[in-house]
């Protein structure tokens, strides 16, 4: 290869290293997005021999039909509940387990595993377990409630309740992952900053948290927010296995609607439009979080 200059050889190496990943990204991410975007302006159905262009009709249907609006609003409510609760619970659990490391390290590690189990377990299998727990007559949740004197609830078939039940499961499922991230963030805080805070008079639990812990967790919190938001928007497994979007579309969400329109009714055009909207929401959200928060967490 002596006929190549040094810089040309280095360029070749760069292509070798980055090429495969770039190619895979192009083929499996960018190309499908382009195809889906094009399809979203058609009435294409899976298996059909031809298609006709319908302009913005799919989008108009999504935003004006009752079911389409339902899916969008439900998803937003779900996300708005899961993000704050999941992040705050995860932070509390992480701080608790981190402190427990000092006086009961073994117990702390066991509990960490317990909290992480829902992340490692298959969500579909876990959904079946939840179905049993939440069963109106036989479920443990209602049994406990009635012994405490409260009225039993139809957790998964009450139209006013079902979305919140799913959100609670969503929180349960994501706390473990966020907790692990926060634990890593906590253990990276140097001990002498806490000691400096103690010398400076910020030694109380409340002052310690606001002077050291919370600011030092800034980058972790940003990452946790982005990951939690993305996962919450993608809520699907619990809906598909527990409610199928019901009763009466009370737990309809964007990804479930996309699945039903595309893979049950084979309306590829409409499903593509949902996908594009879903993609746009996620992209905007992530960019906004990065732009707004990033500058404030890296302390430059």
């Amino acid at each position: 290869m002596s006929f190549l200059t040094r810089s040309q050889r280095e360029t070749l190496t760069d292509v070798w290293l980055t090429g495969p990943a770039t190619l895979a990204l192009l083929i499996f991410i960018f190309l499908p997005i382009m195809i889906v975007t094009i399809l979203s302006f058609s009435d294409y159905q899976f298996g059909a021999r031809d298609l006709s262009w319908v302009g913005w009709e799919n989008y108009i249907t999504l935003f004006t039909s009752a079911i389409g609006q339902r899916a969008i609003v439900n998803t937003l409510i779900y996300v708005a509940i899961v993000i704050p609760f999941s992040v705050v619970f995860a932070l509390l659990v992480a701080i608790g387990l981190h402190r427990m490391l000092d006086w009961a390290p073994a117990l702390s590690r066991i509990l960490r595993t317990v909290y992480f189990l829902p992340v490692a377990a298959t969500l579909v299998a876990m959904a079946v377990a939840w179905q049993m727990l939440l069963h109106p007559n036989l479920g443990l949740v209602n049994k406990v409630l009635s012994t405490l004197g409260s009225a039993p609830q139809n957790w998964l078939s009450d139209r006013g309740l079902v979305l919140y039940t799913l959100a609670a499961i969503g929180i349960w499922q994501s706390v473990g992952y966020n907790m692990v991230l926060f634990l890593a963030g906590l253990s990276a805080i140097p001990e002498d900053i806490y000691e400096a805070a103690e010398v400076d008079g910020a030694g109380g639990a409340w002052a310690r948290f606001w002077t050291v812990t919370w600011p030092m967790l800034g980058p972790t919190t940003l990452f946790v927010l982005v990951v939690t938001a993305t996962n919450a928007f993608r809520v699907f497994e619990t809906v598909a296995t527990l409610t199928r979007g019901g009763p009466a579309f009370a737990s309809e969400t964007l990804v479930y609607a996309l699945y039903r329109e595309g893979f049950v009714y084979f309306k590829a055009g409409y499903a593509s439009a949902i996908t594009v909207i879903f993609f746009a929401i996620l992209l905007t959200l992530t960019l906004a979080q990065m732009r707004l928060v990033e500058r404030r967490v890296h302390y430059r």
């Binding site: 002498d192 400096a196 600011p215 030092m216």
Partner: peptide
């Protein structure tokens, strides 16, 4: 008592 730490231990966000 005031203390100065080897690593300075400054608050990065302030």
């Amino acid at each position: 008592i005031a203390m100065v730490f080897q690593s300075y231990a400054l608050y990065p966000h302030l």
